[in-house]
């Protein structure tokens, strides 16, 4: 099952990317108090997912050398953009990263089911549920920011 372990590694990696990026956006848009606090909270969720996954990663062993899913890897946001339109774009980037995390958990849950790996299934299911909540917030916040950013922002 080399591919499943690759996906487990991908989940771990993409959660980390998401957490780092959420924190970068929190810092970069700290003046927007809700963005600052919520992004930090959501980053904590991603940390937790990785912790929950850690025993599974250990069991399967890290697989860093498989090419295929490498292309699925996305880079973290290291710098953020300025202003209202910048916030909108950063949120959209986060949404992309979270979508990758979400689909990765979906794929892993399928694999875990096939293998009857209950521990992995639990981690994948509960993490995916929270990823859905991360995505929901990102969408809500983008919807709120979009009209002003697109039409009036200086």
């Amino acid at each position: 099952m080399p591919h499943l372990s690759t996906y487990v590694a991908l989940a771990d990696h993409s959660e980390q990317t998401l957490a780092d990026s959420l924190r970068a956006v929190a810092e970069g848009h700290a003046r927007q108090a809700d963005v600052f606090h919520t992004c930090n909270t959501l980053a904590g969720w991603s940390d937790q997912h990785r912790q929950d996954l850690a025993p599974v990663v250990e069991r399967y062993g890290e697989q860093e050398d498989v090419d295929e899913p490498e292309r699925l890897r996305a880079d973290a946001l290291t710098s953020t953009r300025e202003g209202e339109i910048g916030l909108l774009r950063d949120l959209q980037d986060l949404h992309l990263l979270a979508t990758l995390v979400h689909s990765t958990w979906t794929v892993i849950a399928q694999g875990a089911q096939g293998l009857r790996d209950q521990q992995l299934l639990d981690v994948a299911t509960s993490s995916r549920e929270e990823t859905t909540r991360q995505l929901t917030w990102l969408t809500t916040r983008m919807k709120q920011a979009a009209p002003q950013a697109l039409i009036v922002a200086p």
Binding site: Q32, E84, Q144, P147, Q148
Partner: peptide, 20 residues
């Protein structure tokens, strides 16, 4: 009705940048 109504603190924040 396309987005949640803007709350007070956000209004102030838009006024801060001149977007309001």
């Amino acid at each position: 009705h396309w987005a949640p109504p803007t709350h007070a603190m956000q209004i102030m924040s838009y006024a801060e940048t001149g977007s309001i």
